[in-house]
């Protein structure tokens, strides 16, 4: 399974992606969680130790092509090798790899940025499930940062701004070779909200996560949802989402 969580900023991508990755790992799958956002987020939701560290600059080497500077993984290094070496161990056996986090006004991550992208181009296949958390908005998902995904989960709140982002992502997906794109309605207050998300985005809604005070409590405490409110309605809904995606994969 290769899944990327996308949507408007604040829709709940990181919280859901972190819980999803851990619950998927609990089914016995070998899970790699990828955080492509230069701002911290997924590490909190997963419960991995906080760190800014991404890939070291020397994972890539520069070369010239048609007079332009380009980057590739250094000789002898593969995407799988990078993951073995640099992905950190998270709860439930999830491996976690992140783009290095932004710090300071003149932050330059050019080598690490390209290194991360080269790893995305060469992710391990057989035996791994990939769960990616992308930055909010429409700029990146279907270009370089999300191209590894076979399924995009658009996290949508039942409000006009979030629905609009969902519609735009749907259109962009169609222009990008139509990968499988599904909606996850988040912070819903009733079945009517899930219907609004379906109608507002034009996407099949594969999961509906109810509004759950446990999510806010976890975020305030900086604790993963699965540790703060494992028996709450939001965690239960993410379990259903994992099962729904696994069933689709198996079909």
């Amino acid at each position: 399974m290769r899944v990327a969580f996308v949507g408007k900023g604040g829709a709940g991508k990181s919280s859901l992606a972190g819980a999803f990755a851990r619950l998927l790992a609990r089914t016995g799958e070998r899970v790699l969680a990828l955080d492509s956002d230069p701002m911290p987020g997924l590490a909190f939701a997963l419960g991995t130790p906080g760190s800014d560290a991404g890939l070291p600059d020397d994972v890539v080497e520069e070369y010239e092509e048609d007079g332009r500077r380009r980057y590739r993984l250094r000789a002898g290094l593969t995407g799988s090798g990078v993951i073995e070496r640099y992905a950190v161990q998270g709860p439930d056996g999830v491996r976690f790899l992140q783009l290095g986090k932004a710090r300071g006004p003149r932050w330059d991550n050019t080598p690490a940025h390209f290194g991360f992208q080269r790893v995305l181009d060469d992710l391990p296949g057989e035996g791994w499930s990939i769960v990616g958390d992308l930055p909010g908005g429409t700029r990146q998902p279907f270009m370089t940062w999300g191209r590894y995904a076979s399924t995009f989960l658009v996290v949508v709140e039942p409000g006009p701004a979030s629905l609009l982002t969902g519609r735009r992502l749907t259109r962009l997906a169609a222009m990008a070779g139509s990968p499988r794109v599904l909606a996850v309605a988040n912070k819903v207050h009733g079945s009517d909200d899930a219907r609004r998300v379906a109608e507002g985005t034009g996407l099949p809604v594969v999961g509906a996560v109810p509004f759950d005070p446990g999510v806010a409590a976890a975020a305030r405490a900086g604790v993963p949802l699965l540790d703060q409110a494992p028996d709450g309605p939001a965690a239960a809904a993410v379990r259903c989402l994992v099962e729904a995606l696994r069933s689709r994969e198996a079909a």
């Binding site: 990181s14 911290p40 909190f44 710090r103 300071g104 006004p105 806010a216 975020a219 305030r220 900086g222």
Partner: peptide, 21 residues
């Protein structure tokens, strides 16, 4: 910012960067 751990961390970085710049 919101009073969540992730938001406060992002906000701290933003404030620091804006000030330094």
């Amino acid at each position: 910012v919101e009073p969540t751990a992730a938001s406060l961390e992002v906000g701290r970085r933003a404030a620091e960067s804006v000030t330094l710049a």
